[in-house]
Each structure stands twice: as structure tokens, then as C-alpha cells.
């Protein structure tokens, strides 16, 4: 997950795109260390330290990770897409927002 996400964040840095996490880890301090160590630069909501937290409950999330893709108008457009399908979804929605991109990943997936 992380390499693919890092690659997306890097490639789409100047595009109308945001990767937003909702994190359900238990230990917030430990999480900060993990994020630093694994170069997780994107912003995450704190789900209250539990998978049963308020945000995942409101969004009826039962499995992790769960991914939603929301378009520029705020409409849910995809659920549970990964890998190539995720890239295609982002290309499509960015295209709708008037930005043509072709997402590519190199072998280690870090976009460099």
C-alpha cells in the first residue's frame, strides 16, 4: 500500500488531488513515529484510537483498508478500488476536473 500511495502523492502533488487517511491505530505517539519512518506525508483523521471510532462507524467501514474515491464535486465515485483500477479511477476523475494525467509507477513503486 504505502509505496503505491507515496507514488500517487508525489506524482499528483501539483494536481487537484488529495490523499486523506482515516487512521484507526490505537497508539497515537507510536503512529507518529511510524509515519515519519515510512514517509507517510499525507494527512489523516484520527479515528479515536479504535476501528470502532466515530468516523469509521459513520462510514460503516467493516474491513481495513477500505478506500473511497470522491470526485472534485464531493460525490462518491468509487469504492474499494486498488492498484491499476485506482490509478484509472483517479485519471478519469482528474480528467473530469479538467486535468489530463497519466499515472505511472516504476518498479519499486515510489515514483522516482
Amino acid at each position: 500500500m504505502y509505496p503505491h500511495e507515496r507514488s500517487l502523492v508525489k506524482q499528483l502533488a501539483d494536481k487537484p488531488f488529495a490523499l486523506i487517511g482515516v487512521n484507526s491505530d490505537r497508539d497515537r505517539e507510536k503512529l507518529k513515529d511510524v509515519m515519519k519512518e515510512k514517509d507517510i506525508t499525507w494527512r489523516s483523521f484520527w479515528n479515536g484510537g479504535s476501528t470502532g471510532g466515530p468516523i469509521s462507524t459513520k462510514w460503516n467501514v467493516r474491513g481495513w483498508p477500505t478506500i473511497y474515491v470522491v470526485d472534485a464535486k464531493g460525490v462518491i465515485r468509487y469504492k474499494g478500488v486498488r492498484g491499476d483500477k485506482m490509478d484509472a479511477a483517479l485519471e478519469e476523475l482528474l480528467g473530469e476536473a479538467g486535468v489530463e494525467v497519466k499515472i505511472t509507477h516504476d518498479e519499486d513503486g515510489d515514483g522516482e
Partner: peptide, 25 residues
């Protein structure tokens, strides 16, 4: 809700951008 550092923000702050919302741990 709060981010990991405790700063409150909203999903709707990102209207106008394509958002990949990732429930993770």
C-alpha cells in the same frame, strides 16, 4: 475531526479536489 497532531479539519475542505479517502491502520 482532528488529524494525528490534533488539528481539526474537514473532508469538505478538499472540495474541488479529487480525494482518495483511505481508512487505514
Amino acid at each position: 475531526g482532528p488529524d494525528i497532531d490534533g488539528v481539526t479539519f474537514k473532508l469538505s475542505d478538499y472540495r474541488g479536489k479529487v480525494v482518495m479517502l483511505d481508512f487505514w491502520g
